[in-house]
């Protein structure tokens, strides 16, 4: 719990009807910190990350992002969503718009930027994710890896302070995972605050400042990658690591 925490979750709880999805989850992320969240499926990782930009509403506890508490206040939610970029497992690109239009839509309609100005920025981001030549194609014409890189560029075009990644590589073919992880690693190197739900342990080891392990809706343990991989504290974590690192 530092002064510089940009994301702060305190005792967050969430239920789907009677199903208890998050149990008293507390987490704090400092500015520039990279947090990797892992755990078995159904452990509440995605739910937690989706609570941070209020795609899901939490029911108990507090979430504060960059000094703004998330409540059902629409204006506060809008403010936070402008600061927080998100990348989804299934890309969620807009299929009826070209790659470039996907990138410029929100800056024009939310940020009020001029088209000429944002198109230049968008092309810059497309260059950074290494697909400037695809700008005028439609998402359906791209490979999964390319689509996910477009999705990252789309989020970056909003100049976010925080990036959330919700299993960005799990819908990809193995040979495309690397091209996406490379872009994410590069982004991490530039000092972006990142929260990633991922099972890519190599990426976690290389990039993360801390690793959070969740199971059954609670955080079981968290710590630096070194501690986490070399000396896991709980039995549950060891079991999980055993399964995931086996092959």
């Amino acid at each position: 719990m530092t002064e510089t925490a940009i994301i702060e979750l305190r005792k967050v709880g969430k239920w789907y009807n009677s199903y208890h999805a998050l149990r008293d989850v507390s987490l704090s992320v400092a500015k520039g910190e990279k947090v990797v969240v892992c755990g078995p499926s159904g452990s509440g990782k995605s739910t937690m990350i989706r609570c941070i930009n209020r795609l899901e509403a939490h029911q108990t506890g507090h979430i504060v992002v960059d000094g703004i508490e998330l409540t059902d206040d629409v204006k506060a939610v809008e403010k936070i969503r402008r600061k927080v970029g998100m990348v989804f497992q299934n890309f969620n690109l807009f299929p009826h718009l070209t790659v470039l239009q996907n990138l410029t839509l929100a800056p024009i309609w939310v940020r009020g930027m001029a088209k000429s100005e944002i198109e230049e920025i968008a092309m810059m981001y497309l260059k950074r994710v290494r697909i400037p030549d695809q700008a005028h194609k439609f998402p359906g014409q791209l490979s999964g890896g390319q689509q996910q890189r477009v999705a990252i560029a789309r989020a970056l075009c909003m100049r976010p302070e925080i990036m959330l990644f919700d299993e960005p590589t799990s819908a990809l073919d193995p040979e495309m995972v690397k091209e996406v992880l490379d872009v994410m690693t590069e982004l991490a190197g530039e000092g972006m605050t990142m929260v990633c739900v991922t099972h890519e342990m190599g990426f976690a080891r290389q990039v993360a400042d801390s690793i959070v392990f969740m199971a059954e809706g609670s955080i079981i343990e968290s710590g630096s990658p070194a501690e986490f991989f070399e000396n896991p504290k709980s039995e549950r974590t060891r079991q999980f690591l055993g399964q995931i690192l086996e092959h």
Partner: peptide
């Protein structure tokens, strides 16, 4: 929600049955 507790095999997650409530 996808089931938790005794970690069922992954293909169970697609099952239609209501998850037992916690």
């Amino acid at each position: 929600p996808i089931p938790t507790a005794p970690v069922p095999p992954a293909h169970w997650a697609a099952s239609y049955e209501e998850e037992p409530s916690q």
